[in-house]
Amino acid sequence: MTQISQSPAPRAARSNTGRFIGLATLTTVVALLPLALPNAFYVDVAIRIAILAVNGIALNLLMGYTGQISLGHAGFFGLGAYGSAVLTAHFGWSPLWALLAAAAMTAVIAWGVARVILRLRGHYLAMATLGLGIIISIVLSNETAWTGGPDGMAVDSFSLFGVPLSGERRWYWVFGGLLIGTVILAQNLIDSPAGRALQALHGSETAASVAGIDVGRRKVGVFVLSATVAAVMGSLSAHYAGYINPGIAGFLQSVELVIIVVLGGMASIYGSIFGAVVMGLLPQLLAGYEGWDSVLFGLIMVVTMIVLPRGVVPSLTARLRSTRFGTKGNAPC
């Protein structure tokens, strides 16, 4: 995690055509994938990957682009999920209002926390966010009256204006659409003055502040944004799954998100999608190697990061560029 303090790989100027090709490819894959998915089990895997990808992209805005680590991000996912679950089950709110309220509440909490902890850097910030995530999952476990404690609680199915949303296939389109929307919005942000400000303060807080960027406010802003995205995804996946337990907010889930960002590539949107695919599929593929699956999983991670230290997508694109043009990936040409 020390690499968070260093500058990541330089970002290539994103051309509009490159962006369009990426988006067209993603949309095509999302649109055609259901034809290739034989049964509900595989649709479920695809949905889980889409959820991970959206969360990964949101965390990448914070980590990869802005250079601020969060080891407790699943906590916000949990807040969204439990916010929706509690408001619908105990207060009879409609799912949509519950989702919005849970997102707003998470945003406020994230804002309050961020103002304090984002003054910290490096390992200290890692520790603080780690603690935050742990506190959230402990609260979710202990408030048994509201959350059902460690046993978890059931969540009503989602309905929009009285129309219930049910079945894997329908949910697939919701999460697939959200993934595409997230990619579009994230790329818009990165290519905008606001996104440039975030990347600038990652590169040099001194340079950014002298250029007029309010470094503290920007960090808080992107932290709240990524926490709120996680909360919305938490709400929706709670309704989708129909059952939640405090594990969804736990440390392992937070680490999973960090792995997605780092493995796929810091400051790479498609890297996070790739990371989500790996994290979603690898456990399934390794399930056959009972007892050895965790070892193999760890081994694959270690080898990947040694061979492709900047993360899979940025490292490979840099190599592709350098072989195609016969120059170093970064050289002016």
Binding site: S7, P8, A9, P10, R11, A12, A13, L185, A186, N188, L189, D191, S192, P193, A194, G195, R196, A197, Q199, A200, H202, G203, S204, T206, A207, A208, V210, A211, G212, I213, G221, V222, L225, A267
Partner: peptide
Amino acid sequence: QICKNLSAIDNVMVGAHLTLNASMFAGMF
């Protein structure tokens, strides 16, 4: 104090930060 994670011209554009609409909302949409 160069932002090595950005392109050269983006570094210069960072200098123009205050002359642009830099709200995150405006950027996303």
